[in-house]
Simulated scan of single mutants.
Amino acid sequence: MDDFNTVRLKKKTLNKFKKYSKKISPSYSETLDYMIAFFEDNNLSPYDTLGMNRTSLQNVFNKRLDALISILRNVEETQLVGFP
Rank of each mutant, 00 (worst) to 15 (best):
Met1Asn: 06
Met1Trp: 13
Asp3Leu: 08
Asp3Ser: 14
Thr6Cys: 02
Thr6Ala: 08
Val7Lys: 14
Arg8Thr: 09
Arg8Met: 12
Lys10Ser: 10
Lys10Ala: 08
Asn15Gln: 01
Asn15Arg: 09
Phe17Ile: 09
Phe17Thr: 10
Lys18Ala: 02
Lys19Val: 07
Tyr20Leu: 06
Tyr20Phe: 13
Ser21Trp: 09
Lys23Arg: 13
Ser25Cys: 13
Pro26Asn: 11
Ser27Asn: 05
Tyr28Met: 13
Tyr28Ile: 10
Ser29Ala: 10
Ser29Phe: 09
Ser29His: 12
Glu30Ala: 13
Glu30Lys: 06
Glu30Gln: 13
Glu30Asp: 11
Thr31Lys: 00
Thr31Ser: 08
Thr31Cys: 03
Met35Leu: 13
Ile36Leu: 12
Ile36Met: 05
Ile36Tyr: 03
Ala37Thr: 05
Ala37Phe: 09
Phe38Asn: 00
Phe39Tyr: 05
Phe39Ile: 01
Glu40Ser: 00
Asn43Ser: 04
Leu44Cys: 05
Tyr47Trp: 09
Tyr47Arg: 06
Tyr47Val: 07
Asp48Met: 08
Leu50Lys: 01
Gly51Ile: 10
Met52Gln: 12
Asn53Met: 06
Arg54Thr: 07
Gln58Cys: 03
Gln58Thr: 11
Asn59Cys: 04
Val60Tyr: 15
Val60Gln: 08
Lys63Asp: 15
Lys63Pro: 15
Ala67Asp: 15
Ala67Gly: 15
Ile69Ser: 15
Ser70Leu: 12
Ser70Thr: 15
Ile71Leu: 15
Leu72Arg: 07
Asn74Glu: 14
Glu76Ser: 09
Glu76Met: 06
Glu76Thr: 09
Glu77Asn: 13
Thr78Met: 02
Gln79Val: 04
Gln79Trp: 01
Gln79Ile: 03
Val81Met: 06
Pro84Asp: 10
